[in-house]
Every structure is written in structure tokens, then in C-alpha cells.
Design a protein around this nucleic acid. Structure first.
Lengths: 163, 163
DNA sequence: CCTACCGATCGGTAGG
DNA sequence: CCTACCGATCGGTAGG
């Protein structure tokens, strides 16, 4: 809290005129990000027709959440474990909802023969994990073409490293 | 340190008859893991002929490091930022060496037409990032076929989600 | 928004 | 390996 206060040019004690606790700050950040991710789920479901289309849209929107708020995403990703019991359970529930929905799409894709017939959980976690370097990358203000990243990540995740 | 002491059934003060400091503990863990990863680089270089073969071997060995020491890998991954200045620089240097070598193999693979012609850094970080869910997964003692995971991850990373 | 301050906790030491 | 304890730091409050 002393660091945060210093960064905005006041004493730690003065912060408490603006927020009620340190945990409230963390909660706000984590829930904001969780809700943004859940929002992308609804859009991808609405816009995509086939499983592959839905997953493609979701990847692009997921990347957009990260590039739009790399610092908040980094905090949510690294610190959600320190949430108080109730908000932590809340966060985990939202994450589960996200994962379960995506898992359903992957299973659909396998069934209709669009996706490889591999273990669904391996596919799910590999996909989600592979996006996690982006928030580190974007925190350090790079001049990167965001559309290029979206395009190439989809290419890579759907098509693989191999030509 | 009180928690660690409790876990091994002694008082915090007594720990200091076995180790010299908390930071020393972290340093040992991070350096052990960093060196294991560097070791896989040497093996993959020796055994693989083409870029694709080297990368395939590296992925399998990388997974083996994680499944063999999921707890240490998790600590190294989550806490290396809290290393003291010198060991931290040391750790970063080893990581850079790993990344630079792998980057070279990816560029080779693109040149000989084995790999997709996408941005090398995107390929590098996506590949490495995609392996990072495994240490969370393996910390909770699952009965998973490790060879199946190695096989399917290679399939997925080289070939993509799409059939 | 600041000064002054509190109780809890942390890594670690002294001395046995 | 334990008891007793220290100085630093942390989240936060009282009172203005």
C-alpha cells in the first residue's frame, strides 16, 4: 500500500479515503477481468456457427482482453490466489464456467470431425495456457501490430507449428 | 518460514541449523530447475537431426522436467522474480540462453520449409507458454499417463487443434 | 490528505 | 532443536 500510495503521490493512510481495503482493490481487478472473459464467451457463441469458428472468435477476443488491459490481466492472473474466501470462490466459479463452455465447443469440434481427436482437457489447457505470455509481453509497451498477433496466434493454435 | 518449519515438525528458528536463509532456499530451487532445462537443450541438440526433430525432442524433455519435479517447477516459475539481484540475473541469463537456442531452431525450421512462416517470437513464446499448465496439473497428484501427455502435446503443438 | 501510531507478522539471531 | 526475542515492515485507524 505504501508503494501504491507513492505512485499516486500521497501517504498510505490517505489511500483509505478512496478505497476501503487492499483486498477490495484486488477483488475489483480480478472480477473485472473475469467478467470480461465471460463476455467474450457470449459474443463468440453468438457470432460463430461451427465449433472452429466459435473457438477462432474466442481466441481473438481473448487476446483483445489481454492487449486492452495487460496490467489488470497480469494482476488477476498472478494474484487471484490471494483473494478472500468468498470472492475467490466467485472467481473460480467464473473460471470454471468459461472452461466448461470452451470444453463443450472442443468436444463438438471433435464430434463433427473439425478438430483432432485428442484428450479434451489437454487441448483446453494447452490452448488457454498458450495465450498467457501475452500479458507479460504487452505490459512493456511494445509497438506491436495487434491484428498481426491475433491472426498469427489463430494460425498457430489451429494449424500448429508445422507447415 | 514458520509454515515450512511446521510442515517438517520444528520451530522456525531451528530451520536455520539446516539452511542459511530463506533466499538461499529459493535460489537452490530456481537454479536446479534452470539447469535441468538447459540440460534438455543439449540432449535435444545431440539427438535431433532436423529442426522439427530437435523441437519435438525438446518438448518431450521439457514435459519430463515438469512431471518429474512439479513442485519445484511451480516455485521456480512463480517466484523467480523474488530472487536476489545476482541469482536473478543468473537465472535470466540461463533462460535467455534457452530461448535463444530454441529461437535458432525455429528459424532453421522456417528456412528449410518444415515450419510455418510466422513471427519467430510469437512461435517461441506460444510454444513455451503452452507447456506451463502442466506444473499446476501435476502438483495435485493425478494418475495420468505421462507418455500420453508427451505424445498428445507434440501432436497438438506441431499439428494444431484442427484436423 | 497528513501525522502519529497500533497490533500482527516476518526473517532471523542469541544463547543454551 | 527450543525459548526468548529483535528490528523491520505491513495493513489499517484515530484525529485533525
Amino acid at each position: 500500500m505504501r508503494d501504491l500510495a507513492g505512485a499516486v503521490g500521497m501517504e498510505a493512510a490517505s489511500l483509505y479515503n478512496h478505497i476501503s481495503s487492499k483486498s477490495e482493490l484486488l477483488e475489483t481487478i480480478c472480477m473485472t477481468i473475469a467478467d470480461q472473459y465471460l463476455g467474450t464467451l457470449a459474443v463468440a457463441k453468438k457470432e460463430g456457427q461451427t465449433p472452429t469458428e466459435k473457438i477462432t472468435t474466442l481466441i481473438k477476443l481473448h487476446i483483445r482482453v489481454i492487449t486492452a488491459n495487460p496490467h489488470m490481466v497480469a494482476v488477476a492472473h498472478d494474484e487471484w490466489r490471494h483473494l478472500d474466501q468468498l470472492p475467490k470462490q466467485n472467481f473460480i466459479n467464473k473460471r470454471n464456467q468459461y472452461e466448461m463452455t470452451l470444453k463443450g465447443w472442443i468436444n463438438e469440434g471433435k464430434k463433427v470431425g473439425q478438430l483432432q481427436n485428442l484428450d479434451t482437457e489437454i487441448m483446453l489447457f494447452t490452448l488457454l495456457s498458450s495465450l498467457q505470455w501475452l500479458h507479460h509481453w504487452f505490459r512493456s509497451e511494445r509497438s506491436i501490430d495487434k491484428e498481426k498477433i491475433e491472426y498469427e496466434m489463430v494460425e498457430l493454435l489451429l494449424g500448429g507449428l508445422k507447415k
